[in-house]
Amino acid sequence: MAQLTYRDAVARGIAQEMRRDERVLLVGEDVAGAGGVFKTTVGLLDEFGPTRVVDTPISEQAILGAAMGAAMTGLRPVAEIMFSDFFAVCWDIVVNQIAKTRYMTGGQVSLPLVIKTGNGGGLRFGAQHSQSIENWAMAIPGLKVVTPSTPEDVVGLMAAAIRDDDPVIFCEHKGLYASKGEVPDGDIIDSLGTAKVRRPGRDATILSLGMMVPRALAAAEALAARGMDVEVIDVRSLVPLDTQTILGSVSRTGRLFTVEENPQLLGWGAEIASLASDECFWDLDGPIQRITTPHIPLPSADSLEDLVMPSEESIATTIEKALQS
């Protein structure tokens, strides 16, 4: 058991799988010599060499095309899109090519690949380097989407993503890179499609993802001090979605809140709210409420970014008000 940062956990997860399977390659801008602009791939070039850890031009389409072509011919590449915002310049390869090809070819083509990406806000990077794009990706049939919130989950979910035979969008939250956590020794293999209950509770269920998980947990502690016992679930995997854990919790507590780092319209929480109303309606003891960013791009100034992102205070206040009305 060792303390590891979230960013070091990324490299550890990839290294764990590259040691095991020589079909696993890493490709992306500045991932080799520089060890990644977020230092998430430090040490991989030294251990695995330049044929397996490849620096590329600034050519996102070429990077993902290469990953796709390699995956369809027997390899299991991990490609990095440096900032998730840059998916917008290679979205064709992701959506039209990677996501659809197995289906279109009647199952002939397998695409075991992982696209890892720095995702999310809170770093004052402004509107083009701060988005959370999970909801873009989960709207596309054929893509799996995960966002870990702890170093241990980073290692285990990276391993699961690499071992999965389907394409996985692996969202690393930039705001969590420096966070630390205990990580067990030895290989860690998690499973996609599983949510985790981070804090059990009776009075309400809070669903959260990525950097919103620690904020929801802090809000839950604040609410506990005021006599409200809320359950916090780390959704972790949007596709596949662990509806057993999520809806089981909602059925138990009767209240559902989502904490999402994305604009309100068509955020992931909207889909879960819809499921809850379909499948747990008669267990609900109050309206479902979503806590999101407003429907605006993220501003750059720290005071403005803090204002519009869900915070421990805004989460706790919203839930308290809802539970007491």
């Binding site: 993902l64 072509g69 995956a71 369809m72 011919t73 390869i93």
Partner: peptide, 14 residues
């Protein structure tokens, strides 16, 4: 244009 990049990947694999 997309498949030029994908052909690269198959060539990389080979």
């Amino acid at each position: 244009g997309a498949h030029l990049t994908i052909a690269n990947g198959a060539a990389w694999s080979a």
